[in-house]
Design a protein around this nucleic acid. Structure first.
Lengths: 351, 351
DNA sequence: TGGGCGCACTAATGCGGTTTAGTGGATCAG
DNA sequence: CTGATCCACTAAACCGCATTAGTGCGCCCA
């Protein structure tokens, strides 16, 4: 006698096809197809009967067959181009993906998710997915200042939605974006209101579109409030804790160090707080800290970090909705996500 | 005149098929198929010519067509069943996925990655993927103490590899596991060597297999060293910072509080350190802290946390290799991952 | 009462590959 | 010189579904 697992291996259950349904319901395969796809051509009775049989057999359309006969692949793609090294603590993407899938699953669309090393590999992957007809469309994340991807995707005819793009993006590609300028204004309202006049900004990777946007916004908002441009500085990093800490050290070593620092992600903010602690600088007395993006991280440090809270799963849902709209032949649009709010905690105070 | 994007939309590049190659190379479609799949039936010359044409046209097999004609879908699946709430700071999965893909991509296999709310939805998803023939096999993560998944997958005949399973798992399913018992021994060597005799363990979710395993290992290792069982306690949590902090408070409130705490992930360890700071308990003087799993988190706190470091991408690579082996018809195996090592930092010392 | 029409359904075709069953010509042994 | 064998290649069937082009039948209206 063989183990149950072995038996299952040798004789795997056969997947039912429309042929099985047709035979059992006593109709042709086409009738089954019509019935199950809400197409006219079968009576109410027959439709109901076919549906019941399909249910009984646990039938699901073979995705390959459906994709082959001109329909959709039922699959969207998302590529994350990040060197393995910076693939550290990042709650953002898992939450984004979770929101995306929430919406995609309502339309029985799966998500092909791939992590690659660089942009070049990402582009090669798009080409392959396109040639293989593996995906119906893709979500492009981490938009760059001069991004080759929208153009590539347009030339391939592969539907796409840029997530977190510019306010005035490539006119041929739908975009879901967040208003970083307004968000930055909120941060500055908070810090300026507390009395801060020297503010540093530890930004992320320099070639990302939103990095440039935030840097520009900071300058604009500082000007508007009459702050001395020499005392409002941005530096770029690779988002890692190491570079966040290093940037903080350099900033604090300057002649007239800032009284507040804005970090472009939570990991660097925590690293910055750690550098302050190491130097005996009180937070927020000696240094105020703001994290752009909230996470458990900001709540477990001591003091807890003031953070810009955004609804990341919600942003993902929005992006997925837009992609589905594009797949349905909808127009190219630019949709704005919810404005983040500033959750003031103990890491910010008067200088 | 229309925008270039619009033009691309209206006239998307046509994907080349083997028919195109056949026409251009002056042979039949079958010859092309033989040539491109390393099958006998064509001469060396013809094979080379066909290959060249395919290259020129940038041909890639239509994955749907290939899947339909009995071949593989060229796709593996991974489902993460976690309530959205606990989808917090977790570097583990992104790294695991990155390692998995490194191996899968060498065999042109994509990864379908899906986040769902619970185990029931996960099982339903397996059934759907199976019926849709969407995946060739799946990687099962977060194995439970009494896990329905291996049996379900076996009954469906869907190849699977359990990642992080038991040492003596379901005999019908391949398993890749880590030796938590030995790892725990290393942690206890370290703490016991420093002089700790009262040790607490803040574990993860109670129904996960490795939680039970670690709890049992702690007990065994404590016995072996002659520690009083009443002073070596494990409590379970949901892995979140909130429950990690709460557990720490309760532990510290006990009559004879421990002098060292082992946390089952990095987030809870940091939360625990934060509770200690809040109460004015010195680390490591008043309390030593060990994190099971390293990440940037453990390096940005102050003091930096002693952690069990494991090669997570490597673990993912191992799992993917095993899945590919199973797909190739290889035997059911149980493979052991690399033993983690303890990276001693400043959060552990003499009590 | 019969031609036209609409309805419910079936037959046949195609999607892009893989695979099996031929086919014609060169080669070789007898 | 003939029949068997092998080789390179082609023709055709098939995977499971969607879709288009029929087909038979009842019903309505002239």
């Amino acid at each position: 006698m063989s183990a149950p697992g072995e038996a299952a291996r040798r004789k795997p259950a056969r997947r039912p096809t429309i042929k099985d349904i047709a035979r059992r319901a006593g109709v042709s395969e086409s009738a089954v197809s019509f019935a199950l796809n809400d197409r006219p051509g079968v009576s109410q009775d027959t439709r109901a009967r076919i549906r019941r049989v399909a249910q009984e057999l646990g039938w699901q359309a073979n995705s390959a067959a459906r994709a082959l006969s001109g329909e959709r692949a039922g699959c969207a793609g998302l590529v994350l181009a990040r060197p393995a090294r910076t693939l550290g603590v990042e709650s953002f993407f898992l939450q984004l993906v979770s929101g995306i899938q929430e919406v995609l699953s309502t339309r029985r669309t799966a998500l092909l998710f791939q992590v690659v090393e660089d942009l070049e590999t990402e582009c090669a992957l798009y080409r392959r997915w396109w040639a293989e007809r593996r995906v119906d469309g893709v979500l492009v994340v981490d938009p760059r200042t001069r991004d080759p991807r929208p153009q590539l995707l347009a030339s391939l005819g592969l539907p796409a939605v840029v997530v977190g793009g510019l306010a005035a993006p490539d006119p041929a590609t739908s975009t879901v974006w967040a208003d970083d300028a307004k968000a930055m204004a909120r941060v500055l309202d908070h810090l300026h209101g507390l009395g801060h006049r020297r503010i540093a900004h530890v930004a992320g990777m320099p070639d990302l579109a939103h990095t440039e946007r935030r840097i520009r916004s900071l300058r604009t908002e500082a000007d508007r409030r009459g702050l001395d441009a020499r005392h409002v500085r941005s530096v770029t990093t690779d988002y890692s804790d190491a570079e966040g800490a290093e940037a903080t050290r350099r900033i604090l070593d300057a002649a007239e160090p800032p009284t507040a620092v804005i970090y472009d992600n939570d990991v660097m903010a925590v690293a910055g707080a750690s550098v302050a602690a190491e130097r005996g600088i009180a937070v927020p007395g000696g240094l105020s800290i703001v994290a752009w993006d909230d996470s458990a991280l900001c709540r477990v440090t001591h003091p807890r970090l003031t953070a810009l809270v955004r609804d990341t799963p919600g942003f993902g849902r929005l992006a997925a909705q837009e992609l589905l709209a594009v797949l349905d032949g909808g127009p190219v649009r630019t949709v704005q996500g919810e404005l983040p709010h500033l959750e003031a905690r103990e890491s910010t105070g008067a200088p």
